[in-house]
Simulated assay, not measured.
Amino acid sequence: MDDVRKQLRDAAAEHRPDRERMLARVERGRERDAVDFVAARRGRPPRPAPWLRVAGATAAVAGVLALGGYAVASVVQAEEPPPSTVGTPPPAPDSSSAPSPSAPAPDGQNAGPSSPAEHAEGIQDGYLWSDGSVDPQSNDFWAQSTLTFKTGKPLTALTVELRVAQTGGVADTGNWRSLPADDFTVSVGERGGELVYRWTLKAGRSVPAGEHVFAGQYNHAEGGRDAGDDTYAAQATASGQKASVRGDFARTS
């Protein structure tokens, strides 16, 4: 059996197609077609040629392959997304029609009650004007007393004093000024039943002409506090000329 297989493999390896013989077979097939054509005209049915049967089978196989290829192409095409919608970004919004942002609310608009500050009548002495008020953000436990000064001349000396009557639970929580902190010496303490804030301009420093603010902050007993007994005073010097003001705060009815 092994010898037979070897002989068959050798024969297959040595086989070479005979082109001349194949062409001769095709030519004989054509001559047979001519004979069949004459026989058909004489009333005899032609004999199907072997090469024609092979060609027909080949055409049938090609048709099946073509049909299968068309079906595969149709499936692939159906799975592809439409080219008009692939990678198309949405149009950018028109900035000219976008609503403009609203303006920010003023500082402190929602920081506390909107009641007006409690002012006493302003006091003036020459170039120096003053006013005392309780800040409207004060509440039932905490308050700020604000002193406003206006000077028509630069000041070379200034001492400001705020006295808060001890109405119960009054205790310092801080102070500030609109002028530079390093330009003043500040002291806070209780004296004679009052909480006293004092700001003194340091030697060699000056206060420019304009409006300036000093404020003292403090806790107090629960409830609305009456600032009618609170007072303030200021002494200033400008171009060698002295001025002094003294005032109080509006009493709460």
Rank of each mutant, 00 (worst) to 15 (best):
D125Q: 06
R44A: 02
G224R: 08
D2E: 14
R163D: 14
V134R: 05
F184C: 15
Q166C: 05
M22K: 11
W51P: 02
V26K: 10
L179V: 08
P17Y: 00
G193V: 00
Q166W: 15
A157L: 13
R5D: 14
S239W: 02
G189P: 03
W176S: 00
D229H: 02
L195N: 03
A233H: 14
A40D: 13
G87T: 06
T200C: 01
W51A: 06
A103D: 02
R53Q: 10
T167Y: 08
A227N: 11
M22Y: 06
T146L: 07
A57P: 05
V186F: 02
A92Y: 00
E121R: 04
L162V: 11
S74C: 11
A92R: 10
V64I: 12
G204N: 00
Q241N: 03
E190R: 11
Q235N: 09
L128W: 14
G126T: 13
D135M: 07
A111P: 00
F249I: 05
W176F: 04
R32L: 12
A250L: 05
R5K: 09
V35P: 01
A233E: 09
T156Q: 14
N139D: 12
V213K: 09
T200V: 11
R53S: 08
R191Q: 15
W142E: 12
Q109M: 06
A250V: 15
S145T: 15
S96G: 12
E190Y: 08
Y218R: 02
G169W: 09
W176N: 00
A39P: 03
G174R: 10
R205K: 10
V86I: 07
G56C: 08
A221G: 05
G168T: 01
D33G: 08
T88G: 04
E14G: 05
D94G: 08
W129K: 06
T237R: 10
A165S: 07
V186H: 02
E121C: 03
T252H: 10
D3C: 11
K150R: 10
D107A: 07
N110V: 07
P17E: 03
A105P: 08
A250S: 08
E79W: 05
S100D: 09
R47L: 04
S206L: 00
V188I: 12
R53E: 09
A181S: 13
G122T: 09
M1F: 01
D10M: 02
V86N: 07
L52V: 14
P83M: 06
G168Q: 13
Q77I: 07
R47G: 06
R47T: 15
R191W: 03
V54I: 06
A233R: 09
G247H: 01
P48L: 12
A98Y: 08
A203D: 12
T156W: 12
L158R: 00
K6Q: 15
P89L: 01
D3H: 10
Y70D: 11
G210H: 13
G223K: 03
G56W: 09
G56H: 11
F37A: 14
T231G: 01
E121T: 12
P154K: 13
V160S: 00
G29T: 08
G122Y: 03
P90L: 05
R163Q: 15
P46I: 11
L8V: 14
D135S: 11
G43V: 06
P45V: 05
A59Y: 11
L155H: 12
P82Y: 02
P46K: 11
V134K: 15
S187R: 13
G193Y: 00
L8F: 04
V188Y: 01
T159C: 04
